[in-house]
Design a protein around this nucleic acid. Structure first.
Lengths: 115, 115
DNA sequence: ACAACATTTCTATAAATATTGAATTATTTC
DNA sequence: GAAATAATTCAATATTTATAGAAATGTTGT
């Protein structure tokens, strides 16, 4: 893979707010599965508004969350689909795999095994 | 692990110059192993000067490389040992393991397997 | 068409970060 | 002890990035 894209992903996650958002989206894929409110399905993931409410627990500027979500999408870390008024967000599994593999292979390439 | 430290590592690697430096250090642990010049041992890793020369291939401001190396060290990604006039740098394996595990576990926690 | 809602875009501001060269510190060698 | 070398610190600048609120866009329901 191009190094440029790796940098983009790492930079996107190298911000506390964005990592929080991203982790929420990943975890939420599970949490929402048992949510019977019907508002959000597992396949869909939470809306930007839900992400927004979650970030600080109480209030959060929507435009700020919008900005960070766009950064995550531009880095290829999440997918965003428009569903009516809402913007439905979900993590991209391939990006997680890419990053996990990247660090695993770096770990392998270190010949010097001790300490 | 603390989320704060994860962010710090990702931010440090989310810069093209630093990722280049870091990858060089990781690869060099192998490359140097077969180097018979005797100048650098496997256990030691390359010096900051060698890193400096490598980054752009030809010339690179030393203070800039020094800055980036410090960032990598502060993030816990590399170790730096003073050896006479030189600063010997080597990647920290535990950090690679930590990051590989982090993304692997995130990948696992996504219930929604399809797509 | 109008009102309510969700999200994005715009504009301005503040804060963090990268880059550069000069000056400084520390170490080796003569 | 002085010169040479390696690396860091310092100070100035340029660039990028995050934050915030207002305005604009687009969608739903009446």
């Amino acid at each position: 893979m191009a190094q440029k894209q790796t940098v983009q992903m790492l930079k996107a996650l190298g911000d506390p707010t964005r990592l929080q958002i991203f982790e929420f989206l990943v975890r939420c894929q599970c949490a929402v599965a048992v949510d019977d409110s019907g508002g959000v399905s597992v396949a869909e993931g939470p809306s930007a508004g839900q992400v927004c409410c979650h970030v600080t627990g109480v209030s959060q500027i929507t435009s700020s969350v919008s900005f960070h979500l766009k950064e995550l999408r531009n880095a290829g870390l999440i997918a965003m689909d428009k569903r009516g008024k809402n913007m439905v967000c979900a993590p991209r599994k391939d990006s997680l795999r890419t990053l996990a593999d990247y660090f695993a292979s770096l770990e392998q390439s270190t010949c010097c095994k001790e300490k």
